[in-house]
């Protein structure tokens, strides 16, 4: 067993984990942060995406021990008093149906907009390529990211 200490959604969390424990399992099963879902076992779907030190990672392809000392933000820690602009835009644009891909999609989009505040449609589609959605056909997800980008640029002025 290994002792780890991770700042999760702003709070320091410590735990004993097996070397093989995946970050997503630690978040879900040990910390009870069930807002981050699991959609596959081959690192393809992106449903489990979280932010680690500000960058999006698939938490099923990170070992919990690798997260030791880092800052992790999950969908449940994204709202800061009020919803993140990307969360608002997803609702406004009807960018989710069943919502299973949504936590990963939103966190991936937050990272994308951090890197590129004014992406084209093509760049958005590239940026979200690692996140699968079976419901929306991506159309409204792209629109939501465009809307959020505009709002965030406006707010940054």
């Amino acid at each position: 067993m290994h002792r780890i200490s991770v700042t999760v959604n702003g709070t320091t969390r410590e735990g004993e984990v097996e070397a093989r424990t995946l970050l997503v399992h630690w978040l879900r099963d040990s910390l009870g942060l069930a807002g981050t879902p699991i959609g596959c076992d081959t690192s393809n779907c992106g449903a489990c995406t979280v932010l680690m030190d500000g960058r999006s990672v698939k938490s099923c392809s990170v070992l919990a021990v690798q997260a030791d000392g880092s800052e992790v933000t999950t969908i449940q820690g994204l709202a800061n008093g009020e919803w993140h602009p990307v969360q608002k835009a997803f609702k406004e644009c009807h960018a989710l149906q069943c919502g299973y891909c949504t936590p990963g999609m939103i966190t991936a989009a937050v990272d994308l907009l951090g890197e590129n505040p004014d992406p084209t449609e093509e760049e958005i589609r590239h940026g979200l390529e690692g996140n699968l959605c079976r419901c929306t056909g991506y159309h409204n997800i792209v629109k939501a990211v465009e809307l959020a980008a505009g709002e965030m640029r406006e707010a940054a002025k």
Partner: peptide, 15 residues
């Protein structure tokens, strides 16, 4: 706008 979305975009879901 869907009311369903409030818990889905914040990760407060009961799968």
């Amino acid at each position: 706008r869907r009311k369903e979305d409030d818990r889905l975009v914040t990760g407060q879901t009961t799968w």
